[in-house]
Simulated assay, not measured.
Amino acid sequence: MTEASEATRRPPGTPCWVSLMVHSLGSTEEFYTDLFGWEYEPGPGQLGPYVRALLDGREVAGIGQMPPDRHLPVAWTTYLATDDADATAESVRCCGGTVAVGPLDAGIAGRMAICSDPLGAIFGIWQAETHMGTLLHGRPGTPVWNELVTQDTSTVGKFYEHVFGHEAKAHPESSEDFDYLTLRLQGEPVAAVHGVGRSLPHDRGPHWMTYFEVADPDEAVARVELLGGTVVQPPHEGPGGRHATVADPEGAVFTVIRTTH
């Protein structure tokens, strides 16, 4: 790939990449190959054992292996684009968030940091140089949506507005029982914040959820179970399409969805 140009850079605040850090890279690769048809190529050496997942030769996600002495939660991480990782990291701190890792260079691919918002949800920021993030969209096996699941939308919605310039708009069906914001850039929805109050899983806390497109959520759920994963929420119809929440064999939770086009 060539150096990122202004035309190919994602607008700041756009979800641009998802990655997963696991204990067993090889078995995790096999799980997602069987589920999504992914192939792999080596990623930046600075990140340790790390691969980029490919579909038809196009990058869709990253998977890395934790050092043996690290016992962090295994979870998918959503990265938001920025033109200046250092300035965005400082803005995260100023707005009540935390910068846990970085900013640091990932070889020539770009500059990144791992952060958390004021309520503790972890996310990444990515300043692209040669690695542009997810390059394939809209087909089975690709990430199609990112949603923050948190206690409530009021405080944290303002955080993302201030740091990334999102316009947080209440969902038309929002109510006391349905606390939901859409994060927009230039009028277009790029992500969402779902306030679930006391229904937030105690073992996970606030978190970003990655949605992957599949042709048939029911078949995908059956495949997940066959491959050693678990079902967190069975397939059901929702505003965006039929979807289900599952976990891979190491416990990384994600959602499979057949979107309504």
Rank of each mutant, 00 (worst) to 15 (best):
P201I: 03
V92Q: 01
H202M: 07
R198Y: 09
M112S: 10
F178E: 11
T255Y: 01
D216V: 11
F123C: 11
E219R: 13
Q151G: 11
D248R: 08
S24N: 15
D248Q: 11
F36I: 00
G165Q: 10
Y160C: 08
W145R: 01
M21N: 11
R9W: 09
G141M: 06
A109D: 13
A113N: 04
T14C: 01
F159N: 06
G37Q: 12
K158V: 06
L54H: 05
R58S: 14
D179N: 15
T230D: 12
G165C: 10
T245W: 00
T155C: 07
P140V: 10
A89C: 14
V156I: 15
T82A: 07
G43F: 00
R184G: 00
L80C: 09
T33Y: 07
D34S: 13
S5G: 15
V253I: 13
P67S: 12
Y211W: 12
S116G: 15
I108M: 12
H236N: 09
P42S: 03
P239T: 10
T150G: 05
Y211V: 08
Y180R: 05
N146I: 01
C115F: 02
P67N: 12
Y40K: 04
G240Q: 15
C16D: 02
Q46R: 10
V163H: 06
L185P: 01
I125L: 08
G238Q: 12
G64A: 13
M21A: 13
L135W: 01
V92C: 07
T98H: 05
Y211R: 07
A89Q: 05
Y32F: 15
S154C: 06
A75C: 04
L148Q: 04
P235I: 10
A128F: 02
Q151H: 15
T255R: 07
H261C: 05
L47W: 03
Y160L: 09
F212S: 02
H166Y: 15
F159H: 08
T2H: 12
A222K: 15
H137D: 09
P249D: 05
R70S: 14
D152M: 03
T182W: 01
G228P: 05
Q65Y: 04
R242L: 08
H243N: 15
C16N: 10
E237T: 13
R204M: 14
T150A: 14
Q151S: 09
G228T: 09
F31C: 04
G110C: 05
P67V: 02
L47Q: 12
Q46M: 08
V156H: 04
E161T: 09
R139P: 00
H131N: 14
V99D: 01
P201V: 03
A168K: 00
L136M: 09
V156Y: 04
I257A: 09
